[in-house]
């Protein structure tokens, strides 16, 4: 009982501390804290329109995070996820722009193309890692640059639009191949995200594949000696993550921007890494954490608009919250370690 209370206290404490720091920060820049929180809430989740906007930005982030759960399980830092999102968006754009046909054919085709793009880019990083012995962080980073460069090249080169707005991306796709909406909600994108999170949850928890992947991640050498084809598992992890990242890119292109833009990834790949780390690699937690991030991002726009606060304040608030969450995680880990040490000491003494 007492222990449980303490655990709840430990979980709540960083939130309270973070909120306190946020209040101090807002007071320091002469912003009324309650009104600020209210503005962020109403500007992100509090009204139907804003909720729809926020959820649409939540989709690519949670897809990226779901993919990263898989690569992290295999012990891989898939920094190349940004590039996988970009290539997914590029292939989806190619289909949306160049392939003629009815919406019921083109929309699934964009999704498929996006997944294929992400898989190819993921496997490239995987092959470099497995066969080329190139650390996936370096390989991935390089592939990110290549992907972004390719997107910019396409936008100001072969897919350049006429007239002055040439850096604003390609021409808008024809409206019938945009991802469908009902009442402002991009239901197809949301459905894909929910299915993806549930699928990854069960993949990691209830399947032999998930277990073996975790074994590969926990100790690659031992897993190999125990008969798991570790190379193939790592490649599979890259491919699965790439597929989800490619879907994220497709959503960015066909549901959010309705065109290819230079910064099509939105940084959701890197942000996804942070989400997964905060969730401590637990799938169930990535959905609420990602929603929290996007609500704060979308909502903090109101702080600039309504209160004239510097646009960096939203980012600083986010940073403070992340810092406290990480600190709380660190404190908890240290307590566990301390307990174990105490237990060990008792054992030796007795």
């Amino acid at each position: 009982m007492n222990d449980r209370m303490r655990r709840i206290g430990l979980a709540v404490l960083p939130i309270v501390l973070a909120a306190a720091v946020a209040v101090l920060l807002l007071l320091a820049v002469d912003a009324p804290p309650l009104r600020s929180f209210n503005l962020v809430w109403n500007g992100s989740l509090g009204t139907t329109n804003k909720l729809a906007d926020t959820l649409l930005t939540w989709v690519p982030l949670v897809l990226a995070a779901a993919g990263l759960i898989i690569t992290f399980a295999a012990g891989l830092w898939n920094i190349g996820i940004e590039g996988q999102i970009v290539i997914g968006a590029i292939l989806a754009t190619w289909v949306a722009r160049e392939v003629p046909g009815e919406a019921y054919f083109i929309i699934p085709a964009t999704l498929l193309a996006g997944m294929i793009g992400g898989i190819i880019w993921g496997l490239l990083a995987g092959v470099l890692r497995v066969y080329g012995k190139v650390n996936e962080i370096f390989g991935g980073l390089g592939l990110d640059f290549v992907a972004t460069g390719l997107a910019v090249y396409l936008i100001i080169g072969p897919w350049q639009r006429a007239g002055v707005a040439s850096t604003s991306g390609t021409d808008l796709f024809r409206a019938e191949v945009w991802m469908p909406e009902v009442g402002g909600f991009s239901w197809l994108a949301l459905t894909i995200a929910v299915i993806a999170v549930i699928a990854v949850f069960f993949l990691m928890r209830g399947t032999a594949f998930g277990l073996k992947l975790k074994a590969v991640g926990a100790n690659n050498r031992s897993a190999f000696l125990l008969g798991i084809p570790t190379d193939r598992y790592m490649l599979a992890a890259f491919a699965l993550c790439g597929a989800l990242a490619g879907l994220a890119g497709t959503v960015q292109a066909t549901a959010f921007h309705h065109k290819l833009v230079p910064s099509i990834s939105g940084g959701y790949g890197f942000l996804g890494i942070l989400v997964v780390l905060l969730a401590a690699f637990r799938t169930a937690w990535i959905a609420p954490i990602a929603l929290f991030f996007m609500a704060l991002s979308v909502g903090s726009t109101q702080l600039s608009l309504r209160l004239g606060l510097d646009s960096a304040i939203g980012g600083v608030l986010q940073g403070v919250l992340v810092l406290f969450a990480l600190l709380a995680g660190g404190v908890q880990a240290k307590r566990h370690l301390g307990k174990r040490r105490v237990a060990g000491a008792t054992l030796v003494e007795s």
Partner: peptide, 25 residues
């Protein structure tokens, strides 16, 4: 005023959404 309205700095909003917000305000 809203600055840094571009896909890299504010990937989560689009110009037409900013227009909606400003009109509402």
């Amino acid at each position: 005023v809203l600055d840094k309205v571009n896909g890299a700095d504010r990937p989560e909003i689009t110009v037409d959404q900013v227009v909606d917000d400003m009109v509402a305000q």
